[in-house]
Design a protein around this nucleic acid. Sequence first.
DNA 1: TCCCAAATCTGAAACGTTACAGATAGGCTA
DNA 2: TAGCCTATCTGTAACGTTTCAGATTTGGGA
Lengths: 379, 379
Amino acid sequence: MYTPSVHFVQILKRYRQGKSISCNRPGAVMKAKTSDRISGQDAGPPADGERPTLKTIAFMAGLGVTTVSRALKDAPEIGQATKNRVQLIAKQIGYRPNRAGVRLRTGKTNVISLVLNAQSEIMGLTSNMVYGITEVLSETPYHLTVTPYSVENDPMQPIRYIVETGSADGIIMSRTEPNDARVRYLTEHGIPFATHGRTEMGIEHPFHDFDNEAFAYRAVKSLGERGRRKVAMLAGPSPSVTYYRHLDRGFARAIGEGGVGSVSFSGIDVDTSLASIRDRMVEIMSGASRPDGIVCCSGSAAIAIVAGIEAAGLKIGEDVDLASKQSTDVLKWFRPQIIVFNEDVRQAGRELARAVLGRISGRDAKDLQTLSYPGESND
Amino acid sequence: MYTPSVHFVQILKRYRQGKSISCNRPGAVMKAKTSDRISGQDAGPPADGERPTLKTIAFMAGLGVTTVSRALKDAPEIGQATKNRVQLIAKQIGYRPNRAGVRLRTGKTNVISLVLNAQSEIMGLTSNMVYGITEVLSETPYHLTVTPYSVENDPMQPIRYIVETGSADGIIMSRTEPNDARVRYLTEHGIPFATHGRTEMGIEHPFHDFDNEAFAYRAVKSLGERGRRKVAMLAGPSPSVTYYRHLDRGFARAIGEGGVGSVSFSGIDVDTSLASIRDRMVEIMSGASRPDGIVCCSGSAAIAIVAGIEAAGLKIGEDVDLASKQSTDVLKWFRPQIIVFNEDVRQAGRELARAVLGRISGRDAKDLQTLSYPGESND
DNA sequence: TCCCAAATCTGAAACGTTACAGATAGGCTA
DNA sequence: TAGCCTATCTGTAACGTTTCAGATTTGGGA
């Protein structure tokens, strides 16, 4: 049994009184920080107002920094009494580990990086994602940094930067593609990440996805139930982001089951500017083969579609029905007639945060894949 | 004149060939990193695949780390030829300073923290703010971290955390109050920051603000021009955030100039839930003393107001006019009849980023205060 | 010839943390 | 009594950077 000869309370007391004290170990006398030239570790209390470090606690407890470091992380080789003392002092003086010190020593950054496309902002998506993520991270030592890239730039650029500079322990990214270079790169480099959306590369990785296939399927079905017989979908530009494929698949499946026919939109997709969508919709809805039901996967595009429909002299809910995904309530307020399916982006943020953290702590990628389903909120 | 005896190209070449080489200084032979027990600094090249450090460059150039460190930051006491060599090598091997090392040594984090209220999200505000900020930061070594707090929490909590842990060099925050505890605290602690919105504390600090007084004033005037004679404003909860005061002031000034009378809304404000706003609007607009013009400072609240008005059987642009601030185009698409005034939040983000950076680099707070004016985008 | 100043460059120390390889004391065994 | 094991605790080194206080060389002046 190892018994420290001086109890910390005495030291703490004398320390608080500003007295020069000597420790239970040789050489441990109070002295100025800068004039510390002796090789021993317990050089003395820090100057007033400075942030407490392990050294501060070590001095106050009459222990070595190593012991303090271990005591604070509940290492098995530290006595229970010592742990209690150390943890109490740490709490009392408001000790917080210096992130730079930890990072330099261990390489662990305690940072999660959210990589975003700064252009493709669908109403409120980014905000809610950020809030969802931070909600989860706030209970951990992790911070969130945001690293956007513009469309003109290579999506790989921010990823490479993060990996090369080791500036994050994990990455969350969106606009996932079927064959995603970022996923491949990060997998090769063994960096934990989670994607919003799935890939089709045969690489298992953490993701969270909204079931867009289910959404498109149910959207068509809903339109059919309202007697619509000729529906169209505002799809994504063909081969890029994965979720566009899922939309197509769900749409095709619903159509394939019969009862409802389809026409296709040409010249526009969800990435087209709102003004172009509106203008094209006027043309389409004025034409002979106009659809009587429309599926749309973006709240803002839905607004442009409505504008076009009404500019063509038709009425939502009467001449034509619109079923759309929404991530904020705006659409419901906009035209109550719109059939809306909710995607909870904040929840997605939470799931994604949990997924990266899980991956960081070594959990299997397969157990970190979640899907959320469209919530039909109206009628 | 100090002349290194071995030119770096030779060293670099041999280094690249993996050959064991000896440097121009004694003791500088290639050896494994871990077995480095000699006190000299130039221990040898790092293991393959590891990130280059100053040591790597120092070894390759046949210089000391100190010299390399200084050469990279263009210190005056380093010869021009050496600077060129060092900078060339650094570029070639893709050297990037280790942030943890810098941070530990200098205390500089190279981080800007955006402190946000996670609840009061006005459509797209956060996203655009974030994008604006990162646009500016992307040309600097600064990273952006997001630190949200929930309404239930003390707004001071994240601020204290950042200051106590020294986790950022500068802070950007919103929902500025006339007498803002955060501003006082940060000023006392000498931490650079910029606020979105102004205070009324007599403390000079960097800010960016939208001129809400001008907005409210012009909104009332616009309504007057359309023949509206009894206008009301959906104001903020009285004493809190500064910009509500500016709204009141602008509104009062416009009313004071005559021609237009005012009625007041009771029971709701911009922070009320959208459903409550809608419900209350139905009551108000069904009453005898209903306004014929409404001023609203939030896009989402405007949507709820419109819903209420229409539920009461009235038409926007005919029975009543609505003038609202918007930060995305949604309102314009929602009801083209709404009189909208644009606030460019992305631009605000840019200004705020420039303001904190300016403060960090020691510029005077007074020179870092900007105001933006409502852009009337329709008619 | 000697010394000094200017121009360059240098190692050691420090920031705060953790990993490594012991140290120390007490109790127990033989 | 000597020796060993266990339970605790320890100092040193290292992560990569910058600062401090010198070193070293060269050229020039006395």
